[in-house]
Amino acid sequence: MPVSDLLASGFDVLLCIGLLWLAWQAITGTGLFRSVVMFMVFGLMMAVTWARLGSPDLALAEAAIGAGITGALLLNACRAAVSEMRSDEQPLRDRPSGVPKWLALPLSLAAGVGLAWLMHSIPRDGGPTPEAAIKAAETHFLDNPITSVLLDFRAIDTLLEMAVLLLALVGARVLLDQRRLPALYPVPDHPMPMLPSLLAMITPVLLLTGLYLFWAGSHAPGGAFQAGALLGALGVMYQLAGRFTPTHEPGTVNALLITVGLGLFSLFACLSLLWAPAPLSHPEQGAYALVLLIEFALMLSIAATLVLLFVGSRSLQLRRSTNHPGGRQ
């Protein structure tokens, strides 16, 4: 039916133009706040693009991590950029960079056009890895091919990626040890109107969806990352509503939560030598349960790390509710 193809390509053309315009606005726009909004919308559009290109797992991840967490972090940066600005400093003026404009524009344009041509002209003839991956995915004990690649065929990538996430948090703590900056979202003195009710409504839904995404990860789009990011977003919501009090004493529960993912996965890697010649091999029986256990640990670690990165403190204590003003700072 040419009409549906026409509509489909119309949809894609508009989507791509929107992406390019949003990216351009986010980067060359004048106000930082406006750029952050543009970048968040760019993230949303990317999620729709991933859905359009037939990878729903990524649409979920991009929505939860790309648009959700990254957007919240950028808003934090915007807020911090100004609230800690000393009065003498003028608004965020942009000093000319080392590279002059007349050089940067043609250079990046040439790179872009060259890459666009190259990316278009590379023949899409698959190769040994795609064939092996698609064939192996059918017979794999995990029905979701992406989760089977992430947690079995290329398990060390996922493991080391958890180390990267942990390093981001440790790096932020190094900075915190040097200089304790004021909390960005002080506990509101008067409880926010309507926010507690939204929180009461959203929390069960988010928890349910998060656990569902985690559970679905093994046989349908979803998985530890999307679920972890979603629970992270819930944590961000609690922090915004003032239900968390950031403290700087080392909390053992927080430390356990952020390290359980990497710890369990590394332990599995070492113990796998007991039943296989090479590390990171799954045992014959009980592999499915093992993967679920590891994914659950990853989910907890990702959620806890993302929330702590957003709040910017060493650990968090949940407060009963916001109605008693003047909570412990």
């Binding site: 493991l159 180390a163 390290t259 710890g263 590394s266 890697a269 070492c270 010649p277 090479a278 590390p279």
Partner: peptide, 19 residues
């Protein structure tokens, strides 16, 4: 295999212990 496993994963576990 045990040597390579030790080289990569033992420091990771040590990092977790350190935290």
């Amino acid at each position: 295999a045990p040597t390579l496993t030790f080289l990569i994963f033992a420091p990771l576990l040590a990092g977790v212990v350190a935290l």
